Computed example of a mutant assay.
Amino acid sequence: MVMKFFMSQSRSLLLPTHRFTEVVEEVEKLGFDPTTMNYLLAVNSLGMTSKSLWERKSGVFRSFGMSEDQILSALKTKPSYILSSENKIRKVMGFFVNELKISPLVISKAPGLILLSLEKTIVPRCSVLQLLMSKGVLDGDFNLVPALRITHKKFEEKYVSKYQNVIPEVVEAHRGKIQFRGFPFELKLD
């Protein structure tokens, strides 16, 4: 497992020895289990993120109401989420918090959401779901987070292909041709 990881993520091996040691110490201090893949992912992610960049990115998360504990909890769940650019974090968090009214706590429990493309995945999926809700196919018990987290293929099967014969616009929504205007009711978000 370790060799396979470092063969595919060799950039962390190119760090100067003192920096690599600092990163490993930080990962251990954060409580990562050294026998897990997340430990290696944390070494890689923190190794590619300078302390000042980590602070700037953490600042962006805090500006949307995420606490330091939530930022670290998200890191432990999905270390690679911190590799997103500051601009991407700002855009995705802005959409989640301001448009979808998703709390920072929910995002900290599902930090992989930060890695999704706003333009190619999040907004088109929300448009599909909005359309299905407006047609009465989905109701208020619908949980948005799993719908955003599933694979492209599963989403297409579950929400596009399944309904395209009765609601043909769902294909256009999935292609990003129908603008997302918000959900018609408050969603379950956990």
Rank of each mutant, 00 (worst) to 15 (best):
G31Q: 03
L115K: 08
P34K: 08
V24D: 02
K135A: 10
L138E: 00
I82D: 01
M133H: 10
S10H: 14
M66R: 01
Y81F: 15
T17N: 11
L148T: 01
G112I: 03
E68T: 08
K78F: 12
G65F: 02
S85V: 06
P79N: 01
E68S: 12
F20W: 12
R125V: 05
P111L: 06
V145E: 09
V60E: 07
A74E: 05
P111S: 04
H18C: 11
N38Q: 13
L83I: 12
K51A: 09
T17K: 15
E28N: 11
S67P: 05
P34L: 00
T36Q: 00
V23A: 00
R11L: 14
S52L: 11
P111F: 00
W54E: 06
R125D: 00
T21L: 11
M93S: 00
E99Y: 10
R19F: 06
L148S: 02
I122Y: 11
M66E: 07
N38S: 14
V60H: 05
S45H: 02
L116M: 15
A110Q: 11
F95H: 00
S117Y: 04
L46Q: 05
L148G: 00
S127D: 01
G94W: 02
T36V: 03
K88Y: 03
E119L: 11
K76D: 03
V60G: 04
K78W: 12
L144P: 05
A147R: 01
V43A: 03
E22P: 07
F96S: 02
K78S: 12
E86N: 12
S50E: 13
R62C: 09
L15F: 08
P16V: 11
F32M: 00
G140D: 12
M48Q: 15
Q70I: 02
R56N: 09
Q70R: 09
N87C: 14
K135S: 04
V106L: 02
V97D: 06
S85G: 15
F32P: 00
F61A: 13
I114L: 15
K120N: 08
S117C: 05
K135D: 14
E28Y: 09
V60A: 03
W54Y: 13
K51W: 06
G47L: 06
V145L: 08
K57D: 13
K76S: 10
A74K: 01
L144S: 04
E26M: 13
K57E: 01
K51L: 13
A147P: 09
